[in-house]
Lab assay of single mutants.
Amino acid sequence: EPLWIRPDAPSRCTWQLGRPASESPHHHTAPAKSPKILPDILKKIGDTPMVRINKIGKKFGLKCELLAKCEFFNAGGSVKDRISLRMIEDAERDGTLKPGDTIIEPTSGNTGIGLALAAAVRGYRCIIVMPEKMSSEKVDVLRALGAEIVRTPTNARFDSPESHVGVAWRLKNEIPNSHILDQYRNASNPLAHYDTTADEILQQCDGKLDMLVASVGTGGTITGIARKLKEKCPGCRIIGVDPEGSILAEPEELNQTEQTTYEVEGIGYDFIPTVLDRTVVDKWFKSNDEEAFTFARMLIAQEGLLCGGSAGSTVAVAVKAAQELQEGQRCVVILPDSVRNYMTKFLSDRWMLQKGFLKEEDLTEKKPWWWHLRVQELGLSAPLTVLPTITCGHTIEILREKGFDQAPVVDEAGVILGMVTLGNMLSSLLAGKVQPSDQVGKVIYKQFKQIRLTDTLGRLSHILEMDHFALVVHEQIQYHSTGKSSQRQMVFGVVTAIDLLNFVAAQERDQK
């Protein structure tokens, strides 16, 4: 057995438009009618409502009807409940999964919650491996369901041993009777949507819809739904939504950006999952974080739909894509998950301010006199920076000697690579993860907040409520011999709460 199987392995699926269902090699399930009293909570997966979006479509000038398939009504709160249950049931049916076995899954959280929910009911041990950027709410729900959680670096490539995929496979090879159901490759993922989600949409719309818009992560949702719609409703256009920084969209030119990270969760990847059939997507749109969270908040405030950030991405694209539809036509959007997962993220004004998705003037509360002053007023001194090749031991000596707790790590040209902190280095040394002679590049981390000289002290204040420091950066445009230009970030300084307090105190003292 291989040590790991690539999540982007070539698909062996034989589905073709027009091929009889009787030739399918898979076990198919028909939607079942729910009894009045459910035998367990797993029976509350599927049969989610279709809700008309009344205000947002009109606000953006849509002539067509805009409908939302509300997947956050599933038992675990997301569309991923469907595939989690289906993968477990299919693994039980073919004898792969037996009582007492362990389920391991690399996930952005929602599939993990679905699997942990099913594992709690069915009696399996469950280990979820997820990147650090995923919300604390997801972690809390997983723990409450009895799952064990392993976190991995957000910026690790999918084929790196440190990625959530790599760590999951390492655990599988170490733990007896453990299984990775593997949402990236498992046919049960798109089949769950082909058999149930798509049929529900067709039934709820009486077979009449002209466009379907869905955000894409593993691709199982859009693949399964689109294949069924292509068979039953061939005139329906399928629109895929991919965040900026991901590479799922086609044509490839759409993916060209210097951005590699994004805040919206559960969609987009740096590889093409095996289950994603991009041939059934008629057109791709890219979405960005700001519009995703703005539209998610709009869905909550104006439509009462308590959905997550990827739902915002989907609707932001839908109001663009559906401009081509006329009166009497219908566009369906998939709202994948609930706001429950993001209470401390985009639902929080403070978080939105820190990330730059909300401006101070958007909030009406009274601010102190210094709130709208610029960061450049602080008069920061030149920063202490270190090269990635310097040793951890030497870096600790320098920081202690100069009285700093942290320093930016830059390359020879001064471009920011990340940050090192005294606390992080000492804990890594004590844990045996690094040696004093190791290069400081081994303990770089990139989960820090950046701020510009033109940003306000109010925004800085919000950042420092949650973080010990902020890195002050400025952009530099560099022209190359080819005539092309590129933008790079340079370090201007490091600012802490002490710097802000000293500035405010000094100004008030001078005024007296």
Rank of each mutant, 00 (worst) to 15 (best):
I238W: 05
I238E: 03
I238T: 09
I238L: 04
I238Y: 06
G240T: 00
V241K: 01
P243N: 06
E244K: 09
E244I: 10
E244C: 07
E244M: 05
E244A: 10
G245S: 03
S246P: 01
S246F: 01
S246Q: 02
I247E: 08
I247G: 07
A249G: 08
E253K: 10
E253S: 10
E253A: 11
L254D: 06
L254V: 06
Q256R: 15
Q256S: 14
T257L: 10
T257C: 08
T257I: 08
E258S: 11
Q259T: 11
T260K: 11
T261N: 05
T261L: 06
Y262F: 08
G266T: 01
I267G: 02
D270G: 05
D270M: 00
F271A: 01
F271Q: 00
I272N: 03
P273K: 00
T274Q: 05
T274I: 05
T274S: 07
V275R: 00
V275P: 04
V275Q: 00
L276G: 02
L276P: 01
D277T: 05
R278N: 05
T279D: 08
T279H: 14
K283P: 07
K283E: 15
K283A: 10
W284I: 01
W284E: 00
W284R: 00
K286S: 00
K286N: 05
S287H: 07
N288W: 12
D289Y: 01
D289C: 03
D289Q: 01
E290F: 06
E290K: 13
E290Y: 13
E291P: 05
E291W: 06
A292K: 03
F293Q: 01
F293Y: 02
T294E: 12
A296Q: 03
A296V: 04
A296F: 03
A296G: 07
R297T: 02
L299P: 03
L299W: 03
A301M: 14
Q302I: 06
E303Y: 02
E303Q: 06
G304W: 00
G304P: 00
L305H: 00
L306W: 00
L306K: 00
C307M: 06
G309E: 05
S310D: 05
S310V: 00
G312N: 00
G312V: 00
G312E: 00
S313V: 08
T314L: 03
V315D: 02
A316T: 08
V319I: 14
K320F: 11
K320P: 08
A321L: 12
E324M: 11
E324V: 15
Q326K: 14
Q326N: 13
Q326L: 03
Q326W: 09
Q326P: 11
Q326I: 10
E327H: 09
E327G: 15
G328L: 10
R330P: 08
C331Y: 02
V333N: 00
V333Q: 02
L335M: 11
P336A: 04
P336D: 04
P336F: 00
R340Y: 05
N341Q: 05
N341S: 05
N341H: 02
N341P: 03
T344N: 04
T344R: 07
K345N: 02
K345V: 01
K345C: 02
F346P: 05
L347V: 05
L347G: 00
S348Y: 04
D349Y: 05
R350Y: 11
W351G: 02
W351K: 01
M352Y: 06
L353P: 03
Q354V: 06
Q354P: 05
K355W: 07
F357H: 06
F357T: 02
L358N: 08
K359W: 08
K359Q: 15
K359Y: 05
E360S: 15
E360Q: 14
E360W: 13
E361R: 15
E361I: 10
D362P: 11
T364D: 06
T364Y: 15
E365M: 12
E365C: 14
E365K: 13
K367N: 12
K367M: 14
P368L: 13
P368M: 07
W369E: 07
W370Y: 05
W370E: 01
W371G: 10
W371F: 10
H372E: 13
H372S: 12
L373K: 06
L373T: 06
L373E: 15
L373F: 14
R374Q: 04
V375L: 14
V375M: 13
Q376N: 12
Q376G: 10
E377V: 10
L378Y: 05
G379I: 12
L380P: 13
L380E: 09
S381Q: 13
S381H: 13
A382D: 03
L384I: 05
L384R: 09
V386W: 04
V386G: 07
P388E: 08
P388Q: 13
I390T: 13
I390H: 08
T391H: 15
C392G: 06
H394C: 04
H394M: 09
H394R: 08
T395M: 07
I396N: 10
E397Y: 06
L399D: 04
F404R: 03
F404W: 15
Q406G: 14
Q406R: 03
Q406F: 02
V409R: 00
V409P: 05
V410L: 14
A413R: 14
G414P: 02
I416T: 12
L417K: 03
G418Q: 08
T421H: 15
T421F: 03
T421R: 13
L422K: 09
G423V: 04
G423F: 13
N424C: 10
N424M: 11
M425K: 13
M425F: 12
S427M: 04
S427Q: 06
S428E: 13
S428W: 13
L429Q: 10
L429I: 15
L430C: 08
K433C: 15
V434P: 13
V434M: 14
V434Y: 11
Q435R: 13
P436A: 12
S437H: 12
S437I: 13
D438Q: 11
D438I: 13
D438Y: 15
Q439N: 15
Q439S: 09
Q439L: 09
Q439V: 14
V440H: 07
V440E: 04
G441P: 05
G441Y: 14
G441M: 12
K446Y: 13
Q447H: 14
F448W: 13
K449G: 04
Q450S: 15
Q450D: 14
I451S: 05
D455H: 12
D455T: 13
T456P: 12
T456W: 14
L457I: 15
L457W: 00
L457V: 12
G458Q: 08
G458Y: 08
G458I: 08
R459C: 10
L460W: 01
L460E: 01
S461E: 12
S461F: 15
S461W: 09
H462N: 05
I463L: 13
L464G: 09
E465K: 13
E465V: 11
E465L: 14
M466R: 09
D467S: 12
D467M: 08
D467I: 02
H468S: 14
H468C: 04
H468W: 04
H468N: 14
F469P: 11
F469M: 03
L471M: 15
V472R: 04
V472H: 05
V473D: 10
E475I: 10
E475V: 14
Q476T: 12
I477K: 04
I477V: 10
Q478H: 15
Y479C: 14
H480E: 12
S481A: 15
S481P: 06
T482R: 14
T482H: 05
K484L: 15
K484Y: 14
K484V: 15
K484D: 03
S485F: 15
S485E: 14
S486D: 06
S486A: 07
R488M: 15
Q489T: 13
M490G: 15
V491Y: 04
V491P: 06
F492K: 12
F492D: 11
F492T: 11
F492Q: 12
F492G: 15
G493Y: 14
V494T: 07
V494S: 05
V495Y: 10
V495K: 04
V495M: 15
T496S: 15
A497S: 13
L500D: 00
L500E: 03
L501C: 07
N502Y: 12
N502I: 11
F503G: 03
F503W: 11
V504A: 10
V504Q: 08
A505I: 08
A506R: 10
Q507W: 13
E508M: 04
E508T: 03
E508K: 13
E508P: 11
R509A: 12
R509K: 14
R509Y: 09
D510S: 11
D510W: 15
D510I: 03
D510G: 11
D510N: 13
Q511Y: 11
K512Q: 13
K512Y: 03
K512G: 11
K512T: 12
K512L: 13
